[in-house]
Every structure is written in structure tokens, then in C-alpha cells.
């Protein structure tokens, strides 16, 4: 059976105020995909994610979204801001705020949304931290809480922006495991921008490399054989 298409970029150019950051990009994300977006700092990884999320309107081309992803039903894990790290809020309050997109114009959360929040906290192993303050958690725990929040919003697609920045190696490993679990067992499509090529390449099905010399878009194994990938491999040795 052909897996249904969730998101597709057709000849898309993205940028700010007339300056193109990415040009002529073609990309398709299907249900159950795992795509890593790699590239140097400032190459446009975050810009691409903003485009996929619908926060940035393409300057040309089209970003098509499956109907089920409209109205903000994409689970997004943004980069953490400085202000967030010492924010006084309980884990439950943070995760529940992920249900915001399904609430529409209603003012308060329904019982179903509250239990969905609890379920996602259980899935990510942060249920026992429910009444803890977000600011007292370790970096890895904070990231799990934000991932639980993203799951509340997500139907079938997670978009993560540098999720392991600032995590120690053990916590990063943990996060990768969780992501593969969600991808394999729950069929959640994952799009992740990352610096951490090694583990990312072991897990991802597809790789999108953004660089000055153009794109590479293909399977993870092909990437290692490509000119962009070879450079990385040499650096690794």
C-alpha cells in the first residue's frame, strides 16, 4: 500500500524580505517517514522547518499539506529559549498547552484533552514529574516534556528543531530512542533538524543536506556516498 503523503514541497523557495535562503526545493514527507535535515549553521535548516510549519510563506512554489495537518495539527519542538529555562510552570501545565490547537475557539480544556495530555506524559515517562516545576528539571527531562507537548498537538507528524542541543550524551541517546519508538511503533513521521550527524544517520530513513553547493536529498546510505556526505565521513575519521 502506498503510504499517504503528509507534506510536499514543490519547487519551493523560502527566505526573508526578498532574500532567498533556500531555492527550488522538492521534498515529500509520507506517513511513517524519518527525515533528518542537516547542514551548516545558517544554511537554512530552521527556515525550512518554519516553512513546513506554515509560519513562513514560500516566495515561490507551493508547500502542500494533507488536510489532517491543517489547523496546526503538527507537533513542533522548537529550540528552547533562555526565558523558558526558569519558567514557573508545572509539567502538566506545559504538556496540556499542546492541546491548544485542537481546542479551536473554546476557552478551556475538555476532559478528553486532559486525559490525552496525561497519556502522552506516560508515553514519554514524565508522568511522575506531573506536578514538578519545569524549571527544576534536567535538560533531558525538559526536552521530554516538550516532546510530550508536541505529541498532544501532533496527529501524524513531528517537527523537531535541534532537539539535542545542550543535552548530555546519555540524554541525547535517550531522546533518539524515544523518537525511533514513536516512528516505528506509532507510525509518527519525524522531521528533525540536527547537528549531530552520526546517530541521526543511523536512525533516519532519509537525509536532506542543505549547503552552499546545493541540496542532497536521498536515503541515509546514499548520503554517505555523496560528496556532501563524504566530507562528513572524512571529518569523522
Amino acid at each position: 500500500m502506498e503510504r499517504s503523503e503528509l507534506l510536499a514541497c514543490r519547487d519551493v523557495s523560502l527566505g526573508y524580505e526578498g532574500q532567498n535562503v533556500l531555492t527550488h526545493l522538492n521534498l515529500s514527507i509520507r506517513a511513517g517517514d524519518y527525515l533528518c535535515v542537516v547542514g551548516d549553521n545558517g544554511s537554512g535548516k530552521s527556515t525550512l522547518l518554519r516553512g513546513l510549519l506554515g509560519l513562513l510563506v514560500p516566495q515561490s512554489g507551493e508547500i502542500w499539506r494533507a488536510p489532517e495537518l491543517r489547523r496546526g495539527a503538527i507537533g513542533y519542538l522548537p529550540q528552547q529559549t533562555r526565558a523558558q529555562r526558569d519558567f514557573p510552570a508545572t509539567v502538566y501545565e506545559v504538556v496540556l498547552s499542546g492541546c491548544l490547537s485542537q481546542r479551536g475557539s473554546r476557552f478551556f480544556y475538555s476532559a478528553a484533552q486532559k486525559s490525552a495530555a496525561l497519556m502522552n506524559m506516560g508515553k514519554l515517562g514524565v508522568l511522575e514529574l506531573k506536578d514538578e516545576s519545569y524549571r527544576n528539571l534536567s535538560g533531558g527531562q525538559q526536552q521530554r516534556v516538550l516532546l510530550a507537548r508536541a505529541l498532544c498537538a501532533a496527529g501524524r507528524l513531528l517537527i523537531l528543531d535541534e532537539p539535542i542541543t545542550g543535552l548530555d550524551p546519555a540524554a541525547a541517546q535517550d531522546l533518539y530512542k524515544t523518537l525511533s519508538y514513536l516512528n516505528e511503533k506509532e507510525g509518527m513521521a519525524v522531521v528533525m533538524a540536527t547537528h549531530d550527524l552520526g546517530p541521526a544517520l543511523r536512525q533516519a530513513h532519509m537525509v536532506l543536506h542543505i549547503g552552499r553547493g546545493g541540496f542532497f536529498y536521498g536515503a541515509a546510505a546514499e548520503y554517505l556516498a555523496s560528496p556532501q556526505g563524504r566530507r562528513f565521513k572524512e571529518a569523522e575519521l
Partner: peptide, 19 residues
Amino acid sequence: YHKLFAVTFDESFSRAAGL
């Protein structure tokens, strides 16, 4: 209240959620 919380805690996420 809930929307203000979401916007205060995380503008990027709230924006992506369609707020």
C-alpha cells in the same frame, strides 16, 4: 488564561499551533 500561558511560555510553538 490558557492561551496567554501558551504564548508566554513558547511563542514559536503557539504560532505553529495556529494561534
